[in-house]
Design a binder for these strands. Structure first.
Length: 972
RNA sequence: GCGGGGGUCGCCGAGCAUGGUCAAAGGCGCAGGCUUCAGGAGCCUGUCCUGUAGGGGUUCGUGGGUUCAAAUCCCACCCCCCGCACCA
């Protein structure tokens, strides 16, 4: 362990000193520009974060070895509420959080106290994260580092927003948000107790009237207005009569504040108990019928208006409440209701649903055996009825012009019509209430006025975004359809808030641009920030005109430079560096950013840059699981990255997060995995040391290589090919498997073979070893760069392996025959073992009989036929019969052909081609060659004969059973 | 609801895009053996059923279909996970 850490530190030092990851424009080299979503410095990074960044680094390192001038920069996202919220929670003495900081992150108590200041907190974690990134060996060009609250960056964002505004993509309006009335702030998921997302829904308020008095019943199913039999009020709670805009409404007392937040003018005129209104009649605006107001305890005054229309035919709650009322005459009496009033209230059926009776609500209630209106099962019953009615329900004739429509269609039509006729209005309400703010106050819905939006809903903009996406590579490709959907769905996105850190809207300084909106095109900023720092430019010098020229080539440099009090040369330099590195070749992030940041990036690029500068690739990855649970702060199961590095080493951690899962999947991490990775690397190191000792100056001429050497080298090419193909798709797991495990398997077979083989030349072995190791080290470098640098040096190579080239498969070393021979040996061994198992024999001597030449000839002819479709026995027999020399043993041939044909027809096409290319195999020689190994593994004597060998020992006449690729076997 | 991903031999998990070499990689677990003073670990062998000759049978969520041939292609259904915003 100490040893690995020492290596890491050593090479990180060397890289930094040699500045090998600092990328400047180089016209002689193709460039490759990779960025990863910059981190929020509000807590230390953990191993989960490490995955995304490591993947990006591996990508960068791979492309560098493929000969590209790779730029991988990094910055820090101070914008918005994450940093602020963290500081505030600490200031509020959130003990859980403070404990995490002290115990999990091992931050000194004294230091944590200082974190109530957001800037102190941010800059501390900024450095912490940066150090971690260095310790894990990311190949970042640190000269380009910045934060999103740097005044220069603010200028850049201002420029971006002016551009968006001029393009007509900024709009303003009001929209509903979850809101804490006490804090006076919008609440999102992370602001609520239990991290619940406030779900905002739109209720339809249908205006039942009593003369001029409006009873706004809140419903999510306006189409059922035709089945209303009564209105429910909660008799035990307070209601008010209030002037709402130009009308007089009856609503629950609790509703008043909500209406105010929804921008209605509300003035309470009178307060009274719900029971005071029981028994009064109101008119249904849709049917003009007069219906009574009845009492129901299930009515929640906190939900919407607290006034509810009753549709007992289709709403289980209403059905049960009505039944309850009917059965308790005492209640009727209490509220002065005549039994006759109740008797006349009968469920009305207005929707026809297959599988249900006239009264679906009654069916559901009976099925679930619900007796009381307070039964929680009613929730489920309601959902069930609704689900069926929504999908399969048809409106009945008693719904007038909606008759025959599906519920699905009628729902919206009824709503729109009622609103248009002034018989209804709408009200936002939380669907999953109660939602509690962290301050324990119940949240409500507020309509925020004059909110600024980026209008991703614009059709022509969507078209551009689709165009970009269509020409982009998406890794993994499976997510493309999700991007397509997100582009279609997005609409106005609130882009500024009144609090937090960041850039102020240039035209309305009260607002601060929020973090998902100031992080959409910043990749461009990396290409110029180097110059800003180098020349110590002032923010004021970065005028909109300067940016226009640098990024878009608009204007004349001399004029711009003069106005900005800036050297024209610097503007040119920035422009050409931008033009060199842009467009962005690859964008990395966690897959959770697909529906927001990544898609915003696409949109904003298309809005601001010409098509040739749009991003070319997006690569996303899943998260890291720790013992089955997602690694995240709230679960308390995190391992801070730096702690992991100290414990397991950088290369093992890199390997761990990338080798256990492919892009889309979540990766499993555990100390055991990290440990086994470390051991795997240590074994490689040990082996490499051995090889290094032996293979200095290994120069072996090709002709001293034996079959098994050629086999190993041939296999090596296949592994190189596979690893390269995998890396091109960022299937790092696959690549690692190919390089580390599959290659290793072949290599172990090779070792077994040469160990068993008497007199295998050492020079050949050394040559093969060094070939394998050379390729293996190169291919492992992107994932385990530290160890590989060390091995590289050990192998006597000069310079950095980080800058060496990725190996390419050498076609000339691919040896089909050697591979087929070896496959034969493996098959023969396996078959023999199988026979031993089936018979329970312990063999003394084993005889193999390889197929004779005519069998091969027939076999190959069949293959040739099969190449152009299925080979037919009759055809082949005819042809064979025509041939002179085969006439003598037609019966034998027919026998064999029948068996072989079955084989031939199920061989895949590419293997057929291979076999045809190399013709008959010298099976006898192949087995002879592996005789030492076979003897050793089978613990028996081994003899090989050609089946037609007259000298053969064959007491059981097995030889005739041989077929190509399947020698006959006799064991005694 | 809308959208996305997924259901593989005890468990985890490849393979499915380009159907055949798939009873289906690898790891874990389990069983036996070797090694070690011991502990850990390492190595080897086995691990669907069945068979005294390399074979046969039944498997890849469920049910159909296409094909000489399907874990792999098509259709329907069931189940699980994730996202739906002003919040990163």
């Amino acid at each position: 362990m100490e040893f690995l850490r020492a290596i890491e530190e050593k090479w990180q030092g060397k890289w930094e000193k040699a500045k090998i990851f600092e990328a400047d424009p180089d016209p002689k080299k193709p460039k490759y520009f990779i960025t990863v979503a910059y981190p929020y410095p509000n807590s230390p990074q953990h191993i989960g974060h490490g995955r995304t960044y490591t993947l990006a680094d591996v990508h960068a390192r791979y492309m560098r070895m493929r000969g590209y001038n790779v730029l991988l920069p990094m910055a820090f996202h101070y914008t918005g509420t994450p940093v602020l919220a963290m500081a505030r929670r600490l200031a509020d003495n959130d003990t859980g959080l403070i404990n995490d900081f002290i115990n999990v992150y091992k931050i000194p108590k004294e230091k944590v106290k200082e974190f109530t200041d957001p800037m102190t907190l941010a800059s501390f974690f900024h450095q912490e994260i940066k150090t971690g990134m260095k310790e894990i060996g990311f190949s970042i060009d640190w000269r380009r580092e910045f934060t999103t609250i740097d005044p220069h960056y603010n200028r850049f964002i201002e420029w971006q927003f002016q551009k968006l505004r001029k393009a007509g993509y900024i709009s303003r309006g009001s929209h509903p948000v979850g809101w804490c009335p006490k804090d006076g702030n919008p609440v999102g998921q992370h602001d609520t107790v239990g991290d619940v997302e406030p779900e905002i829904g739109e209720f339809t308020l249908i205006k039942f009237r009593q003369n001029n008095l409006v009873f706004p019943t809140a419903t999510l199913r306006p189409e059922t207005v035709f089945g209303v039999t009564n209105i429910w009020l909660n008799p035990k709670t307070k209601y008010v009569k209030a002037a709402v805009d130009a009308e007089q409404w009856i609503v629950s007392k609790e509703c008043v504040e909500k209406l105010t937040h929804l921008n209605r003018k509300v003035k309470v005129l009178e307060t009274f108990g719900g029971k005071d209104l029981i028994g009064k009649l109101v008119e249904n605006p849709a049917t003009k019928t007069k219906i009574p107001i009845l009492p129901a305890d299930f009515v929640d005054p906190k939900n919407a208006t607290g006034v509810v229309m009753s549709v007992p035919g289709h709403a289980p709650y209403d059905y049960v409440a009505l039944e309850n009322l009917r059965k308790t005459p005492s209640q009727l009496k209490e509220y002065g209701l005549a039994p006759k009033t109740i008797e006349s209230v009968k469920p009305i059926s207005l929707i026809e649903v297959p599988g249900y009776s006239e009264i679906p609500a009654a069916d559901a209630v009976r099925k679930m055996n619900i007796k009381e209106q307070t039964d929680p099962k009613l929730e489920e019953a309601t959902k069930e009825v609704y689900r069926h009615e929504f999908h399969n329900g048809i409106m009945k004739p008693n719904t007038g012009k909606y008759s025959g429509l599906s519920v699905n269609e009628a729902k919206d039509k009824v709503k729109q019509d009622l609103i248009a006729e002034g018989k209804a209005t709408t009200m936002y309400e939380l669907l999953n209430r109660p939602v509690l703010c962290r301050c324990k106050t119940e949240c409500i819905v507020k309509i925020v006025q004059d909110q600024w939006f980026i209008d991703y809903g614009k059709q022509e903009w969507k078209t551009l975004a689709h165009k970009n996406l269509d020409n982009m590579e998406i890794l993994p490709e499976e997510l493309r359809s999700e991007f397509n959907n997100v582009i279609d769905w997005l609409h106005e996105k609130a882009c500024a808030r009144k609090s937090g850190m960041g850039t102020r809207l240039p035209w309305d300084k009260d607002w601060i641009i929020e973090s998902l909106s100031d992080s959409t095109i910043y990749m461009a900023y990396y290409t110029i920030v180097k110059h800003i720092k180098e020349h110590k430019l002032q923010p004021a010098q970065l005028t909109d005109e300067v940016f226009d020229y640098v990024f878009l080539g608009i204007g004349k440099t001399a004029e711009i430079a003069q106005k900005a009090k800036l050297d024209a040369k610097i503007i040119e330099e920035m422009h050409s560096e931008f033009m060199y590195f842009y467009p962005l070749d690859s964008r990395h992030s966690g897959r959770d950013l697909v529906p927001n940041h990544l898609t915003f990036m696409i949109f904003n690029h298309t809005a601001i840059f010409p098509e040739k500068l749009w991003p070319r690739q997006i690569a996303t990855n899943g998260s890291v699981m720790m013992e089955g649970a997602k690694m995240s702060k709230s679960f308390g199961n995190i391992i801070p990255l730096r702690e992991g590095l100290a414990k397991f080493g950088a290369d093992p951690i890199r390997l761990s997060v990338l080798s256990t899962a492919e892009l889309l999947q979540d990766a499993e991490f555990s100390p055991a995995i990290a440990k086994s990775m470390r051991e795997r690397l240590e074994r490689l190191y040990k082996f490499a040391s051995e090889v290094a000792k032996n293979s200095r100056n290994t120069k072996t001429s090709e002709n001293s290589l034996t079959a098994i050497d050629k086999w190993m080298l041939s296999r090596l090419q296949e592994h190189i090919r596979k690893a390269t193909e995998a890396m091109d798709k960022l299937a790092v797991r696959k690549a690692i498997h190919s390089v580390l495990y599959e290659l290793e398997q072949d290599f172990q077979w090779y070792q077994k073979r040469i160990t068993a083989q008497k007199g295998h030349k050492k020079s050949a072995t050394d040559f093969v070893h060094s070939q394998v190791l050379d390729a293996q080290i190169r291919m492992l470098t992107p994932v385990a760069p530290h160890l590989c640098e060390e091995l590289w040096k050990m192998m006597g190579e000069k310079g950095f392996v980080s800058l060496a080239s990725w190996p390419t498969a050498d076609e000339s070393m691919i040896n089909i025959e050697a591979e087929e021979n070896e496959t034969l040996v493996m098959d023969v061994l396996e078959d023999t073992l199988n026979i031993m198992k089936a018979t329970g024999m312990t063999p003394k001597k084993i005889y193999y009989y390889t197929a004779c030449s005519w069998k091969w000839k027939v076999y190959l002819e069949m293959l040739e036929k099969a190449r152009h479709g299925e080979a037919k026995l009759s055809e082949i027999m005819k042809e064979l019969a025509a041939e002179e020399d085969s006439k003598k043993n037609m019966k034998e041939i027919a026998n064999f052909a029948q068996k072989a044909l079955k084989e031939v027809n199920r061989i895949p096409q590419d293997r057929r081609e291979k076999v045809l290319k190399m013709k008959a195999l010298d099976e006898k020689a192949a087995i002879e060659d592996a005789k030492d190994l076979l003897k050793q593994r089978l613990k028996a004597q081994v003899e090989v004969y050609d089946e037609e060998d007259s000298q053969r020992y064959d007491p059981k006449y097995k030889a005739a059973l041989s077929t190509p690729f399947k020698p006959a076997i006799y064991i005694e």
